[in-house]
């Protein structure tokens, strides 16, 4: 079986983002970028399925500027077999990404798509579900366990009250949650090998899908700041303050 894994280049999760003074967005120039952490988990899961003999080929896909090639090289170094960049300088919204991925699925005919559940920049949590809808496939979102069979995949999902299990006919879309696995560290020899793997760049226009944004961002602002308060010297003082000053207990 072939697995398609979409990956996104985002501002690294350790970076404290700064809102631009003109309110147009957050500062992304000269800031460290890396693969969206949930997508790393998706790549790792695909590689483990391949190592377990359930998957023959892993195709990593990214959409965006040429710089996303770095992110695809990381996926290749982790164990993806080849990569495709859908190149565009436009900022893409989840519906557009889902449409582009659906077009790639038509070309590549994977049996399974494994995607991160959300990107840590726009925090939308939409693309995997939208892709499944466009393809008419089943979806297993927020996965903490994936068992891949020949014609079905069983997915354990993290839900608000605990965990839920669904069984999906293949082909299907899975989106990964944090505890599905722990992605491997990429070793230097694999980084070298990844440079020789196939990475195709196609122009987004070639896919023939509508990528126009539907949402307009009018403003991006800092959230209200929380001020630090006081240090108390003892448990007794804490309880006294909670009772008589904050009046919350």
């Amino acid at each position: 079986m072939k697995v398609l894994v979409p990956v996104k280049r985002v501002v690294d999760y350790n970076v404290k983002v700064r809102v631009k003074a003109d309110g147009s967005g957050v500062e992304t120039a000269n800031v460290k970028h890396s693969m969206n952490p949930f997508d790393e988990i998706a790549v790792e899961e695909a590689v483990r399925l391949k190592e377990a003999g359930r998957v023959e080929e892993i195709v990593a896909v990214s959409l965006g500027e040429q710089s996303s090639q770095e992110t695809l090289r990381t996926a290749l170094a982790m164990g993806a077999d080849r990569a495709i960049l859908v190149a565009t300088d436009e900022a893409l919204q989840p519906l557009a990404v889902a449409k582009a991925l659906a077009a790639l699925v038509e070309r590549e005919q994977p049996g399974l798509v494994i995607a991160g559940k959300q990107a840590i920049d726009d925090d939308a949590n939409q693309t995997a579900q939208m892709l499944a809808a466009l393809l008419g496939w089943g979806q297993g979102t927020f996965a903490c366990g994936v068992e891949l069979g020949d014609d079905a995949v069983t997915v354990s999902r993290e839900v608000d009250g605990g965990t839920q299990t669904v069984r999906l006919k293949l082909p299907a879309v899975v989106s990964t949650d944090l505890r599905l696995n722990e992605p491997r560290y990429v070793k230097l020899p694999n980084i070298m090998k990844a440079k020789k793997k196939q990475l195709d760049v196609i122009d987004a226009g070639e896919l023939g899908v509508d990528l126009a944004p539907r949402l307009t961002t009018l403003n991006v602002a800092e959230p209200p700041k929380r001020q630090g308060g006081v240090k108390v010297a003892s448990v007794a003082e804490l309880v006294e303050k909670l009772r008589n000053e904050a009046k919350v207990i």
Binding site: V19, D123, E222, P223
Partner: peptide
Amino acid sequence: IYAGNAIATVQ
């Protein structure tokens, strides 16, 4: 967005 480190107004 960005884990609550920014608030976007979208139309």
